[in-house]
Amino acid sequence: MAPTSAPWRTDDRPSPTASTAPKPAPRTTEPRVSRPAPTGLWALIIAGGYAAGLAADAIGLPAPYLLSSLLVGAVLALCGGIRDRLPAPANRASQALVGALMGSYLTPSALVSAAPVALPLTVVTAATIALSVAIAWFLARGGRISRPSAVLGMVPGGSAAIVTCADELNADVRLVAFTQYLRVGLVATTAPLAAHWMTSASSAAGGHPAAGGAAGSGLLHLVAGSDQLTGLVTLAAIALVGSWAGRRLRVPTPVLIGPMLVALVATFSGALPGFAPVGVLQNVVFVLVGLDVGVRFTRQTLLSVRRLLPPILACMAVVCLGCAGLAWVFAGVTSIPFTDAYLATTPGGINAVLATAVSSHANVALVSTVQSLRLLVVVLVTPLITRRLAAGRRPAPLTA
């Protein structure tokens, strides 16, 4: 009888000799605490993020729906109010709609206008990757972060794809995910403010004022075309077909890039009506993007990397400042506005950067083209660079 009664006693009074008895308790109660009512809870959070966006828009905050929902998500995650990521269907839908929006801006005239800057664009892209790898190598010199983890954490662009391949490259997935999304959060928070400041400074200096939003975008005006029903059906078809094609073609971040490529074909053909999300639908998409970034910053994540946070933040600041310097050179060589160059070369967070470009009325086609091309290059070359740097060196474990 003693062996059968001991486990029950350890539930009330933990004993050092019964090591397996306490394990079932947290595993049976934790999921119930973290997921009380996913659908209803997330509906309230999304509605709250939209309400916060309306308030932020009323006071003139740049990229209001993106920035306010990011802050709402971060506060809820840090306070323990939400412990789950954005539901997968909502995340996939927001990525697909962002991809369709990106593709709608890549018109033939926009790509032709971007052709003269192809060479400096390529040089800036290569320089951005080289800068990130150099900073990652410096970060790994202390020995507390392995080279694969440092490189995968620092490279700009393709956060989801980079985190996915971390295991295969013997990197610490937890550290890579935290570093990638911390960088995305910093970019998403600072880019709207920087773009707003630069746009205001340009207008004050006599530059061209920012163009207004889409005229006549009422509550029921959800897509750019005049025929709302046809436009919504086209948008849904582009999102679904593009996501399927992206997975079949195995492109990086298929749910984003696939719809972008299909939307690009639709835009070039000119046969399909206006399908780009506008008005309330666009705002909801930006709310979902902001929440997806914000809810990743939980207390557990911050505690697990608290000792590594200062050097990581310092290295990120260097990368961001370096990219801003490259943007300044890029703008000087190509004579494009510095705001456009800055958003085009910002290190990662393509969804957030696109939202910022739309809100600040920047050259969205240029920003989308540069960010998309760099994302593809980063996802293709980062595994090769990581394996090269990690050759002959075993990864160091993450120490909290």
Rank of each mutant, 00 (worst) to 15 (best):
M1H: 09
R9G: 11
D12P: 00
P16W: 04
P16G: 09
P22I: 00
P22Q: 07
K23N: 03
V33A: 14
S34H: 12
R35C: 08
L44I: 11
I46T: 13
A47M: 12
S68H: 08
A74M: 15
L76Y: 11
D84G: 11
N91T: 07
G99N: 08
L106K: 11
A115G: 11
P116K: 09
V117I: 14
L121F: 12
V124R: 08
S149T: 14
M154G: 06
S159E: 01
S159G: 10
L169A: 04
R183L: 05
V184S: 04
G206M: 09
G216W: 02
G216Q: 08
A224I: 01
A224D: 11
S226G: 14
A236T: 11
I238C: 10
A245Q: 08
R247S: 09
R248K: 14
R250P: 00
R250Y: 02
V255H: 12
V265R: 01
V265C: 11
A266D: 06
T267R: 15
G270N: 10
N283R: 15
V284H: 11
F286G: 03
R296Q: 14
Q300V: 05
R306V: 05
L308T: 02
L313N: 01
A314R: 09
A317T: 13
P337T: 01
Y342N: 01
T346E: 04
G348K: 10
A352W: 00
A357D: 01
V358I: 15
H361M: 00
V367S: 01
V377N: 05
V377H: 08
V381A: 13
R388F: 13
A390Y: 04
A391V: 01
P397V: 03
